[in-house]
Simulated scan of single mutants.
Amino acid sequence: MTVASMTGFARVQGASGVVRWTWELRSVNGKNLDLRIRIPNGLDTLEQKIRERCAAVLKRGNVSVGLSMQRDQSATSFTVNETALEAVLKAVALLRERAPDLAPATMDGILGQSGILTVNDAEDDEETRAAMMAELTATLDQALAELSAMRATEGTAVGALITGQIDRIAELTAAAETLPARQPEAIRARLAAQVAELLDAGAGALDPQRLHQEAVLLATKADIREELDRLTAHVAAVRDLMRSGGAIGRRLDFLAQEFNREANTLCSKSNDVDLTAIGLELKAVIDQMREQIQNLE
């Protein structure tokens, strides 16, 4: 399975009998699957099908589903209310007698009066309506397939960025692992020099045994073995998720938080300029990765 972005767009047209329509689907980032549906009046039974079909292929994202419909005007007839028309024509004639300077009434103006012209749409029988609903559903499925394909294409691009960033995190973790300053010999030499300075400054007032205990404690607090091990484990977990694909955005976001926690701890424990630089770059790469993760389903 591939990873999918949460952003995409699809537009599909369809027709059945004298009715034409257009589906438009738009998707952006969201914590859950949030559907906003706009369909013409009289198609209330279609809304549940829309929700079911969207939920079957989309797991997360704010998704807008719009349906616009038009009926062929050649299938439309009109009825003129003769009584209402006669009354309006008499009123027009009367006004022209009393106010001859008024502009003459137009046909559009007369027919536009309420109750004169009635539009008669052709009534669809049960079979025609069932065929239209089936075609509406089929074109909705087509629109969802196109939306999913666009989300998958963008997800592939985002996944490539995340893969590059996780490779960089692995490189920085390995660099921290092999820093000369965190080797046992270097740590012992640095602590020994610090203890020697304290003893010289205290002129024997300091307890060597106590200083030794404090030095061991400081060395333990400064050790980043656990942080490096967890960073390595998180790198492996992200790679496993990327290989599995599917709706992995939330789990990746959790791992990004864990990455950030370890990088912060590494920086706080650092007693070496090079290690601090690695920690800061780790934080920068993790922030960039987390921004990309926000786009994934």
Rank of each mutant, 00 (worst) to 15 (best):
R51L: 02
P100N: 08
G42Y: 01
E47L: 05
Q113V: 15
G112D: 10
M133W: 08
V92Q: 00
R60Y: 01
S77R: 15
E82Q: 02
R98G: 02
L94N: 15
L94K: 13
E97N: 07
D101P: 13
E127P: 11
D44Q: 09
E86M: 14
A93K: 15
M107G: 11
E52G: 04
I110C: 09
F78G: 05
T106W: 14
A99M: 14
Q70H: 01
N120V: 10
A134E: 15
A99V: 13
G42C: 05
V80G: 02
D72R: 14
R98M: 09
L58N: 03
V80H: 10
V57C: 05
D121G: 05
T76P: 07
D124W: 04
G109E: 08
L102M: 15
N120H: 08
L46V: 00
S77F: 12
R60T: 00
E86G: 06
E126L: 09
Q70L: 07
R60C: 10
A55E: 11
S74Y: 09
V92M: 02
D125A: 07
I110M: 04
Q48R: 09
T45W: 14
G42M: 05
G112L: 13
M132T: 07
G42R: 09
M133Y: 01
T118G: 01
T128G: 10
M69F: 02
A93I: 14
L67A: 03
A87L: 13
G112R: 15
G42E: 01
A130W: 07
A105I: 05
A91I: 06
S68L: 13
R96T: 08
N62F: 06
V92C: 06
G115N: 13
T76K: 14
T106I: 14
A56C: 13
E123W: 04
E47F: 03
